[in-house]
Simulated assay, not measured.
Amino acid sequence: MYTRVLYPTDGSDPAREALGYALDLAAEHDATLHVLNVANTNQDSLTTVEGRVVDVLESEGEEVVDEAVDRATERGVDAVSAVLQGDPALTIVDYAREYDVDLVVMPTHGRSGLSRLLLGSVTERVVGSIDVPLVVVNPTEDRTFRYPPREILAATDGSGAADLALDSAVALARDTGATLHVVYVVETTTLGFDVRSALASEELDAGAESVLEAAAERAEESGVDPVTHVEHGHPHREILSLVDGEVDLLALGVHGETDFSRSVLGGVATKVIRTAPVPVLLRRESDSAV
């Protein structure tokens, strides 16, 4: 299913934790792991040593990728590495395209600050422009990530991006034998309790069932029999409630070239990723497909 997995790293602790997941994934699919470090040329990184100009960031990057490759070798995973100069997010996206990678694995945050999660980070910018599946890992000390997954949850609203995420979840469920759950969250928090709101709620429920039926048919065509759920309330809270249990991987769709806040599912993807206790697989619908 995956033959080339890209793991961008800055050598931070969150990146090292994401490497463990990337290695599990690459080992399971017998994939080659591409380890990439980007020396950010937007920063002053040049110094003079013994009359020679040495790019300190690039030198550090070599140490970072060598450490990751050593860990891959210990796991029996084929790995290649590269240290490039440029804008980190743009370089990651360009590398993924040039080497035709199947999947990118990144932490939700890195050296930009542990308190700064996804928003404002390199990962956010990659999410907003990458064309291949991207798994973001929110490092945590109190939970061990499991791969291959046994339970996968795909959240949908019937949009094109959500369909892409569903397709990735279906393919993964088929390949690993995992149980696939598909959820549609009906936002009822803005409805009152009069007759009109009751009628609106019935229409929303009917629409949700229709979307889930189409999603189930989509999965069944690929040989996967999903479990469907209709939930009510705040979308991100309901999704996280379902995740907080046996689910090992969450799949979401996003769109927007640079503005990650313009995500599907009513803009809840950002909130979900910030606190998701499991890796989140993201699929972006390009502007040309909208």
Score class of each variant (00 low, 15 high):
Tyr2Val: 01
Arg4Glu: 14
Arg4Leu: 02
Leu6His: 13
Tyr7Phe: 15
Asp10Thr: 08
Asp13Arg: 11
Tyr21Pro: 02
Ala22Val: 03
Leu23Cys: 12
Asp24Tyr: 02
Asp24Arg: 05
Ala26Lys: 08
His29Met: 02
Thr32Cys: 04
Thr32Tyr: 01
Leu33Gln: 12
His34Asp: 14
Leu36Glu: 08
Asn37Ser: 11
Val38Gln: 10
Ala39Leu: 00
Thr41Met: 08
Gln43Asn: 04
Leu46Val: 08
Val49Asp: 05
Glu50Ser: 14
Glu50Asp: 15
Gly51Pro: 11
Gly51Arg: 06
Arg52Lys: 13
Val56Tyr: 08
Ser59Asp: 11
Glu60Cys: 02
Gly61Ser: 11
Glu62Met: 08
Glu63Thr: 13
Val65Ser: 07
Ala68Arg: 02
Glu74Val: 14
Glu74Gly: 09
Arg75Met: 09
Val77Ile: 08
Asp78Gly: 11
Ala79Tyr: 04
Ser81Thr: 14
Gln85Arg: 15
Gly86Asp: 08
Pro88Met: 10
Thr91Arg: 12
Val93Pro: 00
Asp94Phe: 02
Arg97His: 08
Met106Ile: 10
Met106Lys: 05
Thr108His: 12
Thr108Arg: 14
Leu114Cys: 01
Leu114Asn: 06
Ser115Gln: 13
Gly120His: 11
Glu124Asn: 05
Val126Tyr: 10
Val126Glu: 06
Val127Asn: 03
Val127Phe: 04
Pro133Cys: 05
Leu134Lys: 10
Asp142Gly: 02
Asp142Val: 09
Phe145Lys: 03
Arg146Pro: 00
Pro149Val: 13
Arg150Val: 13
Gly158Ala: 10
Gly158Phe: 01
Ala161Glu: 07
Ala162Phe: 03
Asp163Gly: 10
Asp163Glu: 13
Leu164Ile: 00
Ala165Val: 04
Leu166Lys: 05
Ala169Pro: 04
Ala169Leu: 02
Ala169Val: 01
His181Glu: 13
His181Phe: 05
His181Lys: 09
Val182Pro: 00
Thr190Ala: 13
Gly192Leu: 12
Gly192Phe: 07
Gly192Ile: 07
Gly192Cys: 04
Asp194Thr: 11
Ala200Ser: 06
Asp205Met: 02
Ala206Pro: 00
Gly207Tyr: 07
Ala208Gly: 12
Glu209Ile: 01
Leu212Val: 07
Glu213Ile: 02
Ala214Pro: 00
Ala214Lys: 06
Ala214Thr: 14
Ala215Trp: 00
Ala216Phe: 02
Ala216Gln: 10
Ala219Asn: 03
Ala219Lys: 03
Glu220Tyr: 00
Asp225Ala: 11
Gly233Asp: 06
His234Asn: 10
Pro235His: 04
Arg237Gly: 06
Glu238Val: 03
Ser241Pro: 00
Leu242Thr: 12
Asp244Ile: 00
Val247Ser: 09
Asp248Ser: 07
Ala251Ser: 15
Leu252Thr: 10
Val254Tyr: 04
Thr258Glu: 14
Phe260Leu: 15
Phe260Lys: 05
Ser263Gln: 03
Ser263Asn: 11
Ser263Lys: 00
Ser263Arg: 01
Leu265Ser: 11
Val268Arg: 07
Lys271Trp: 06
Thr275Glu: 15
Pro277Asp: 14
Val278Leu: 08
Val278Gly: 08
Asp287Ile: 10
Asp287Leu: 11
Ala289Asp: 07
